[in-house]
Design a protein around this nucleic acid. Structure first.
Lengths: 256, 256
DNA sequence: CATTCCGTTGCTTAATATAAAACATTGTTT
DNA sequence: AAACAATGTTTTATATTAAGCAACGGAATG
C-alpha cells in the first residue's frame, strides 16, 4: 500500500462528499495532515483532472476526469452493450423503470437505467450502489451465490431496515433466497423504498456464474397479481435472453 | 507535485485505454518502472476501487469508483439540473439529438445528451471531450471568450481537419467567430462529422461569463434553410432561458 | 520435463514526501 | 482605516516512505 496515493484518493472521496467543495485547511483538519502536504497532493490531483479549484471560493471540487473514465468504463462493459436492446424492449413492453446492475464487493451498482413513462421517481441512478438484502436485484444475486459467500456478505453488511417490509431476520431471508432460486426470479415488495415494488431476474455468464441482474420497478398501486404475472414472464424471458447473449446455456438449468 | 500519486493516476489512464486490461509487467514496461513498484501502486488503486484485477486473466482493469464519482459529479452540476427540463422541451419540439456541454481546458465535455427520435448516430457521449474549432458548441464558446484566450487555445490545440468542411485557416475562423458572436448562435456544417449539422447557442452565468453551450444535431439531409431557421429560433430561446435560470440578465446584451 | 515469464513478497536504502516555518493574500473585527 | 485572524501557498531540512533488487511460487511455453 502506497501511503501518499492512499491519502490522495481519500482526498478525492472527501471532496466528492461536499458539493460546495473543501479548502486546504479543512482537508488538513479532516485528515490530520499538514496544510503543505495537502496542498501538494491537491496539486497533483488537479494536474490529472480529478480535482479542480473554484476560482472564486478557492475551494477544491471534483474535476471531470471521473466523468471521462466512467464513460470509458461503461462502454467497456460487454454485458451492458449486449443487454441494451433487451432493456429497451422491456421498457417498451412494460412502460416501467428498468434497471441493469452488476454485483461488486457485497453490493450492486446500477450500470443502466431506463426511465419508462417517467411517472415513477426512484433513488436509483447509474453509478450508485445499493444493498443486496432489500433490493430485488440484490436478492436475486444472493440467491445464486454460494451459501458461504452469502453468509459472509450478510455478516459484513448486516441487514439494516429500510422500510417496514425489509426482511431483517436471517433465517427468513435464507428461505426467501431458496424460493427465489427455485422460481427463477425475485420480487421486492417495498423492502427498499416505500411505495415501490420491483421484480428481477438473474443474468449468468458463459460459465454459469451470476454476474448481474435486470429488474422492472413500479409503484405498488400498479402491481396487481395479474400485472406481476405478466411482468414475471417478461423479466425471466429477458433475463434468459441476455444470459444467452453472454454464452450461458439454459440446458444447465434442465440438469438441475 | 507528488511523484507516486502522479504515477498512480497515470496507471489509471493507461489501464483505461486498454479494454482488455493490462498486466503488471506491461505497465512496468510502459512507465519504465520496477514491477514491484507498479504492483504496490496497483494494490492501492484496487483498495480504493479505481482498478480491479480480472480473476481469470490477472489483468488490471478500471474499477467502479470512477462511475460512482461521475454520478456524484453530474448531480452536483447546478447548470445540468437547471437545464434538464429545457433540454427535454427542446427534444420534444425538434425530435433531434440535444447536447449540453461545458467548457474545460480548451475543450468541451458533454454533460448531457438526449437521443431524440434515435435515427441519428453520433460519436458524442456524456463524459467525452470534443474539440472547440469544429463543433457548433465549441465555436459558440470560443466566440464569447476573450480574444487572447482564443488565440492561446488555437495555438495549443491547433485546428486539425476532421472533415472536408473543417475550418483550418485561422483568419477565416476568427471571422466565423465574429459572425457567431453577432448573431447569437453558431452552425457547424459537417465540420466535425460527415453528414451531421449542428446548431448551438451559448449559456452564460450570473456574471455574464460563458460557461456552457446547448446544441441540436441532425443529419444534414434534414437541415433545409427553413428547418435551420426554425431550429435557430428554438435554440436561441432555450439558450436564453437556461442562462436566465443561472442568473444571467439579457439586458447586458442590449447595451452591447 | 526444463525453461521462461509473470505476479507477488521481503528487505535495504536512496529519494521523496512531509512538516515546520515563513510569506502573501483575503476576510473579519474593532 | 487599521489591526488581527485565517487561509492558501512557498521554501527548506530531514524523517519517512517509495522504490528497486533479488528471490520465490505458479503458470505458460517449448
Amino acid at each position: 500500500m502506497v501511503q501518499s496515493v492512499d491519502r490522495a484518493l481519500t482526498i478525492i472521496s472527501l471532496v466528492s462528499q461536499n458539493k460546495d467543495g473543501m479548502g486546504v485547511t479543512e482537508l488538513a483538519s479532516h485528515l490530520e495532515l499538514n496544510k503543505s502536504s495537502i496542498f501538494r497532493l491537491l496539486a497533483t490531483l488537479v494536474s490529472h483532472g480529478y480535482i479542480e479549484q473554484d476560482s472564486e471560493t478557492k475551494k477544491y471540487k471534483l474535476g471531470y476526469k471521473p466523468l471521462e473514465l466512467s464513460s470509458i468504463l461503461l462502454e467497456s462493459i460487454d454485458l451492458r452493450l449486449e443487454a441494451k436492446p433487451f432493456l429497451k424492449e422491456l421498457e417498451t413492453l412494460t412502460n416501467e423503470v428498468i434497471h441493469l446492475v452488476v454485483y461488486d464487493e457485497g453490493e450492486v451498482i446500477y450500470i443502466e437505467k431506463l426511465e419508462g413513462n417517467e411517472t415513477l421517481r426512484t433513488h436509483s441512478k447509474v453509478g450508485r450502489r445499493a444493498p443486496l438484502h432489500c433490493t430485488s436485484v440484490g436478492k436475486v444475486i444472493l440467491a445464486h451465490l454460494p451459501q458461504a459467500e452469502v453468509v459472509s456478505i450478510l455478516d459484513r453488511k448486516g441487514m439494516p431496515k429500510h422500510t417496514e417490509n425489509t426482511i431483517t431476520d436471517k433465517e427468513s431471508f435464507m428461505v426467501e433466497l431458496d424460493k427465489i432460486r427455485n422460481q427463477g426470479y425475485g420480487i421486492e415488495f417495498e423492502e427498499n423504498e416505500p411505495g415501490i415494488t420491483c421484480i428481477a431476474a438473474p443474468i449468468f455468464d458463459n460459465r454459469g456464474v451470476i454476474v448481474a441482474a435486470v429488474s422492472i420497478s413500479g409503484p405498488s398501486i400498479r402491481m396487481s397479481e395479474e400485472r406481476l404475472t405478466e411482468l414475471r414472464n417478461y423479466i425471466t424471458s429477458i433475463g434468459g435472453k441476455i444470459s444467452s447473449r453472454l454464452g450461458w446455456r439454459a440446458i444447465s438449468r434442465q440438469h438441475r
